[in-house]
Design a protein around this nucleic acid. Structure first.
Lengths: 140, 140
DNA sequence: TTGTATTTGCAACTGAGTTGCATTATAATA
DNA sequence: TATTATAATGCAACTCAGTTGCAAATACAA
């Protein structure tokens, strides 16, 4: 069973409706290799002949975020980007020249650091955001 | 000699002018314990009776950033924040409840990871942005 | 097929940040 | 001190991401 169908069933079982926009957005996220901003979603929807108002796109983003189907990322260009909720904990590296993005998996990611923060800063760490910026193979 | 004066001399020696706005903004950054957004700068300037147009604030931010006197940070709320260029490499932890911010210093920060990225992703890493979110002592 | 709560579209808005251009003011020099 | 070049500023109008209130449409259970 493709991943989209699993998500459809999950949402249906929770009593949410499967509208054309919602299903298409979920398919877009499942298939996309890169995190997508609201404007990216809009142009992909248009290409797929599913016309959706931008308000709906933002509301659907909130909905999918709330359902933990997607998660939000920030690459420092002032746009919020989203990707399907990952199975594996990972981060990203963005090429500062051509915006090409790759996933990066780190070993034993920041667990010790979060313990240190609890000890030294008295903060209970919930999550962290870590993105790398650099030059991809082509742009070096 | 206070830190602001050192920066004033540096800029002067490079041939830049020391205007009221520029000097006041540098003083604000030097004194501030927290990273500041453009709107924060505006309200602090008003309190100090130095009225400055918002265009000037944004241009001055660009200037100070270009001179490596301040650096930009993102905490994921859609605003860009700035702090005086740090002597020590550090990150931040933000309380998701009350927005209180503390600095966090990590040991041997991410050097091994950046080497790994060069090996495995073929990216030459220039920099990284890492921010923690959690609950501060009061909000736990 | 119907009832209704969920979802959507629209239009108008907010708030961060940008641009072009005319004006002002810093600071080096005469 | 007065002159001058140009760095810095103000203003108004703009872009672009994202939000809000409300009326209309639609998914889907019964």
């Amino acid at each position: 069973m493709p991943k989209s169908s699993i998500i459809f069933d999950l949402l249906k079982s929770k009593g949410f409706r499967l509208t054309r926009a919602r299903k298409t957005l979920i398919r877009i996220f499942v298939c996309s290799k890169n995190p997508l901003a609201a404007a990216d979603l809009n142009s992909r929807l248009e290409k797929m002949d599913v016309s959706v108002n931008k308000t709906t796109i933002y509301r659907e983003i909130d909905f999918l975020k709330g359902q933990r189907i997607i998660r939000e990322l920030q690459f420092g260009d002032g746009k919020r980007r989203y990707e399907i909720w990952p199975d594996n904990h990972h981060h990203h590296i963005v090429c500062i020249n051509c915006d090409y993005i790759e996933c990066v998996e780190l070993d034993g990611c920041l667990e010790d650091e979060e313990k240190k923060i609890l000890r030294e800063n008295n903060f209970k760490t919930i999550k962290h955001s870590l993105e790398f910026q650099g030059l991809c193979a082509k742009c070096q």
